[in-house]
């Protein structure tokens, strides 16, 4: 694999899982990201907050190349994200993503959803993949749903399956794009519990969410986005009690 270690650090001893430097992104004439710089370390849980349209979603989607950044530099686990297909594939295999709208494959059963990528991309034998899938389903709490179709599950169950599906590829980083925004209130807790357990187990996570409770409990750091810029970075305690930036104060006053 063609890897480019971040300058100045020996590869292998790299503690910085995600490095973003001056990342910019345009959609036509509209600039969604205006130069975002931040670093996510191994095992860190970073929660991204901000008003809608602030670029949070665009930012984490540039990390696994669902959007192509127009300027700046992104390095994931020592591999620089360029147009080189091998880099992109290597990076994608390290990152798991959970979407707001679950995006489960409706024509496959739950267990087929989870085993598809391990079997087709990693070449795992079917039995191994299914065994691992069942373990993951147990971990997220719904082993009995293995042979159902996504349409037969509740929203909370579907999202947990989506988390299991992402975990099946054994990623080092998990990205969450507003995982509970499309859920009914009574199902939010079950998904957040799974995410808390994941955080506790040492997974590097970047989570976009409006769930302040989760942020306060599980986050190591809060990133506040507004209008395409990363305006404030702080620990949860600092951010929620003493936000520095005016717009952060405005945002918090609206949601708390």
């Amino acid at each position: 694999m063609a890897t480019q270690p971040v300058a100045g650090l020996a590869s292998g001893a790299n503690d910085a899982m995600i490095v973003a430097e001056g990342v910019e992104k345009w959609f036509g004439r509209f600039q969604a990201l205006k130069g975002v710089t931040t670093t996510v370390r191994r095992g860190e849980v970073v929660v991204v907050v901000g008003p809608s349209g602030s670029g949070k979603s665009t930012f984490i989607r540039t990390i696994n190349r669902l959007e192509r950044h127009d300027a700046g530099r992104i390095v994931v686990d020592g591999i620089e994200l360029t147009d080189d297909l091998r880099n992109i594939e290597a990076i994608r295999s390290e990152i798991g993503m959970v979407f707001q709208s679950f995006n489960l494959f409706p024509h496959l059963t739950v267990i087929q959803n989870i085993t598809l990528a391990p079997r087709m991309v990693r070449g795992r034998p079917k039995a191994d993949a299914e065994e691992k899938a069942m373990q993951l389903l147990e971990r997220v709490g719904i082993p009995e749903q293995a042979h159902k179709y996504p349409a037969q599950l509740s929203g909370g169950q579907q999202q947990r399956v989506a988390i299991a599906r992402a975990l099946a590829m054994e990623p080092r980083i998990m990205l969450f794009d507003e995982p509970t925004s499309a859920l009914d209130p009574e199902m939010i807790k079950e998904v957040l519990d799974v995410m808390k357990e994941l955080a506790g187990s040492g997974m590097t996570m970047v989570v976009i969410t409006h769930e302040i409770g989760f942020a306060k409990e599980a986050a190591d750091r809060i990133l506040f986005f507004d209008d395409g810029l990363l305006l404030e970075e702080a620990t949860p305690d600092r951010f929620f009690t003493e936000p520095q930036h005016d717009r952060a104060k405005l945002f918090l006053s609206q949601i708390l």
């Binding site: 696994n64 669902l66 990152i95 709208s101 489960l104 087709m120 599906r165 992402a166």
Partner: peptide, 22 residues
């Protein structure tokens, strides 16, 4: 749905695999 293709991409499926399976 665009999200289907993105989920398949995020899982690491190649474009051919995305087409064929999803």
């Amino acid at each position: 749905d665009r999200g289907q293709k993105e989920a398949a991409q995020a899982l690491g499926l190649s474009p051919a695999q995305q087409l064929r399976f999803v």
